[in-house]
Design a protein around this nucleic acid. Sequence first.
RNA 1: GUCCCCUUCGUCUAGCGGUUAGGACUCGGGAUUUUCAUUCCCGCAACAGGGGUUCGAUUCCCCUAGGGGACGCCA
Length: 523
Amino acid sequence: MPQPAVRTRFAPSPTGYLHVGGARTALFNYLYAKTCGGKFILRIEDTDQARSTEESYHQVLDSMRWLGMSWDEGPELENQGPYGPYRQSERREIYDRYASDLVTQKKAFRCFCTQEELEKKKAQREAMGLPPVYDGKCRNLSDDEIQTKLDSGLSYAIRFRTHDTTNEVVVQDMVQGNVRFDTSLIGDFIIVKSDGFPSYNYAVVVDDHEMQITHVIRGVGHLSNTPRQIMIYNAFGWAEPAWAHVSEIVGSDHKKLSKRHGATAITAFRELGYPASAFINYMALLGWSTPDGEEYKSVAELEKIFDVSRCNKSPSMFDVFDLSKTENAELSGLSAVELEPYLFAKSKMNWLSNRHIRALDEEQFITDILPFVKEVGVVPENEVHAKDERLRSVLLSLRVYLDYYMQIRRYLPDFYTSFDPGKTWNDAAMEWVKHELFLSLAKEFLRLIQTKGNEEITQDDYKEYMNTAGKTIGAKGKNLFMNLRVAATGRTEGLELPVYLVLLGKERVIERLTRTIETAEKL
RNA sequence: GUCCCCUUCGUCUAGCGGUUAGGACUCGGGAUUUUCAUUCCCGCAACAGGGGUUCGAUUCCCCUAGGGGACGCCA
């Protein structure tokens, strides 16, 4: 008998931006569906009227799209899928229908208690050291009593009648193993709120059933809700899906991701210029490991090898910030530029991201980085173009240095703006500026370059001039090359010098050497 | 308060009764690159603590400590 096709879903509530925790849950669902050749469904859980916003809904979808986690069924698709609508707010009649079935079968009941009343009772029970469960006041109202209350226009919620039949529920979980729960500790919980909207534990069951979800992959925070959901499955006589509760992600302070870690919005990392594939790769490694131990993986490969049952139970840290810098900092709401200084430069994410950037197809790399080039603002507008040969060469030469695209702003001005030698020189550079042969080498190098007249100068030409200057002045090795490097670039580090000089262009090389000589002579 | 889950190098993790406890990032050292980065070697670094079970526990059980989650008309 063939296994039914795997169907997973990600079910965010649109009450804020998509953050790393949610995105990773989405990713696990997405990857698991891909690996199994199944379907990935996106469902919006917007039953909280007070907190759900349209803006958040768009942000979440936007982040999903950027990450490339395309859904097979869900909102904003030409063909949304056979089990829609995929926004819970549009599925009211479905929940109503099933809820009245439950009420008719006495598996659920109307509760007329007011919120104030319930809060008071809860406080009392807590004071007495009792578990804060519903006391069952409306549990056994007679039909007449109910009708009277209904007639007088009292509003009501619908509660599920728990622990009538069993007193233990076992959650069989692909990650957590078998977890037992005592249902006597679970009170009759609300399935339909007095505003008529379904509550989470109820809507999620109805939808997962209706949408034929086979595997529920979500954060372990939902584990203790699962017995309630299983009770509902049982009440309807429906088969449970397979459960997989994956570990939570914590911040650098070992606390669960929260507002304090506002910088964990997915959009922040897009703005910083991490390739989506790198971010995916990094997130996949949080709580999961590849079977072969290799950590650098393309998305295509992850889509072939992901298996939820390899997930571990312990929480993992989203460790991309420098703890010493973030200690007293409020990271939420910062722009990418403001956020960048707080990043830990040598994080595993940066390492992975650098590898992803270097593995990119050339055209893709240029396309991806161009918006960031434009943002830097130093490249003349008519040259910010994928076809511009010089820009291409500069970008392609620099790519090995980049962990994320926004870093291009550190390097680009060097190629596109005139420089002030006095300011560029740091301590290391000054060591060479003061070198006894610095000026004579710079002058001789400049003279040789100028002999070329209007002709282009190639890398080989530069190499020749460097060697010639060395012989004429009597310098070689480090003394030759470092002096010339500092003379032409103002820095002690950077690209291979002939490559760099060709990228710079003859005019700028001459200008720089000239200014360097002027400045050095005044010292 | 009650219930549930978690705890392996600083970090991400492998491990599923017998391993010199493995890998990756970071860090330190070296080689290559007449610079930096890359690349390549080498090294530092961990089973939270205490009891059991067992010939033998990182692994199984119990307790303690620490962390997280749930007990909502939030999801």
